[in-house]
Design a protein around this nucleic acid. Sequence first.
DNA 1: GTTAGCACTCATACACATCGAGTGCTAACG
DNA 2: CGTTAGCACTCGATGTGTATGAGTGCTAAC
Lengths: 342, 342
Amino acid sequence: MQLDERKYLILQAIIDDYILTAMPVGSRTISRKSGVGYSPATIRNEMSDLEELGYLDQPHTSAGRVPSNKAYRLYVDHLIKTSKLTSDERERMHDHLVSRSKQVESVIRSAAGVLSDATKYTSVIVAPKLGSLRIKHIQLVPVAERTALMIIVTNAGIVKDAVIRVPEGMDADDLYSISRVLTQKLADKPLEAVRQAFSELLRTAEQNRKLLGETLQVIEKRLEEGGDASDVIVGGSTNLLEYPEYSDVNKARSFLSVLESKDTLRKLLSRDGGMEVSIRIGPENQLPALSDCSIVTASYRLGDQSTGTLGIIGPTRMNYNRVISVLDFMSRALSDVLSEYQ
Amino acid sequence: MQLDERKYLILQAIIDDYILTAMPVGSRTISRKSGVGYSPATIRNEMSDLEELGYLDQPHTSAGRVPSNKAYRLYVDHLIKTSKLTSDERERMHDHLVSRSKQVESVIRSAAGVLSDATKYTSVIVAPKLGSLRIKHIQLVPVAERTALMIIVTNAGIVKDAVIRVPEGMDADDLYSISRVLTQKLADKPLEAVRQAFSELLRTAEQNRKLLGETLQVIEKRLEEGGDASDVIVGGSTNLLEYPEYSDVNKARSFLSVLESKDTLRKLLSRDGGMEVSIRIGPENQLPALSDCSIVTASYRLGDQSTGTLGIIGPTRMNYNRVISVLDFMSRALSDVLSEYQ
DNA sequence: GTTAGCACTCATACACATCGAGTGCTAACG
DNA sequence: CGTTAGCACTCGATGTGTATGAGTGCTAAC
């Protein structure tokens, strides 16, 4: 059996209604809708077909129908009619983004806020991967006897720091000059290439071998870590609790627990492909705790190399249309704002 | 009517039981307890007295009694029997704290995790106030034409950064030397005193007047802000959802919303007095959303000047004994670990 | 002063009837 | 032949009545 024009129409009507109400949709409801000129009985026949094809589920015999994950997949692939945001709305979102402080982290943080406010779902943003960044500057600052703070500035303006031990009797001026050398040698190298440059450096500069060794270790460790907890930022985590899907506390808890694990989130938002919006529906994301959530993601750029991910997590019956529009816009806006630092 | 020995005993037994079960406590339950040698009828008479005195509430006629906020207040002030943590436990907590990276923020973050794990409640930690820190180092790093990143390192190792504009034609070496001057002039000054030092600096160094002006502005702005969102760290936000008090989604939501507002949290944890543990029960903290929560706070030190706050938020029937022990220990442990940087 | 006994209260659980939204099927209709 | 009206049927939701039991307050006896 194939899907003809009318089946598409009815399926779309059902999905639209379900997205709005979260209640099983009956044949009468669809029949009453403008644009559908059929009686409830006819609709029922079609619904029966659609159920057989796997596009609809029936919670129990005497309830209406509910769209299946397969239906949502069809919906986002073919049925969706993307609409643009109003220019007023675009402007407001953009303003929110730039009004904050100019720290990269602040921008991302407010972007998460804007996203969750605009969609009423939960937003997650992953900061650009450190690996694709380039070193701009390295500075050693004395903080105590034999202890220094190493600060790594990247081309994205993101600052990484770590406390390291330095050899006895090294004063501020020594650290200063070492910093200059380090910066000269390592500037504009991607972090991946640092190792090689470093071992080279290690051969030439005998006197500070020990310090350099430790510094290298720290940089490598940062590289391995891939990023710390503050690299994943969540906005509007309680938004989803507004929806009837989460009126059960246990469901709410298991959802919120996922948001607490930054590692899981980072994996969840990893994506292949380019800048365009990507959608994973229900079980398509492997996590059981999110099996009735959909995740919509997009990328943003920070400079030429590094990209980050921004995403929306909501119930499978989310307003895909709206979410796609917002994410699409924000991915551009965020890239624009962050590129000012380049 | 005064509280005699027996009333204390019974009240304590009721509170102890209610903390464990969250169910109204009946006279029979108390009577059966070891240490209480009275029949249910006698207990009932005493409970009736205690209710009249405002220490007990009765949800409805045929239910048991529930401790009132006044009872909790009495409990923490007089009845509580503080117990020490096992040395095994202390060790485990301490290890968790030091095993992580040496970044100050990481330490605080893992402290929040340890706190919430150890108590099964929600933990909140406020980073040390910026105002009481001293500047250790200022560094300007070129990131683009006419743009530089200003990094402020404090004696606590906390790095603050901001993007600023610099005059045309200023190269890396210029910024280097300016950084040195800035650092020399401002080092070891508390942030509050920076303004004065700066205006002095402004008089002497004519050529870079404009740059210095902007830099000053940025530092002042940071000062005003008092701290950004990342200065308040929450651990175990979903822990409270385990308790029957939050089986209602609306309660859960209003609680979690409070955790999302870092400003509110910062205010909530502000405290007077020294290092000792302080307790606010139910409505004693002004926030209606937390009117059936208790907040227990303690301070930790970072160096000589600056102190931060760590706290536990839980239901009013929380295990005060346990929470006090854990907080007391952690406030010392955290101070110790952070003082290594001094 | 303490306790046993007893009537009373009230939330909770359960059984049972009712209601109504919605379906599936069949037959009639254009 | 596709569409629709009619109707019996299903099943969750809602409401009502009753039993249960934990717990109280009061009184009288120990």
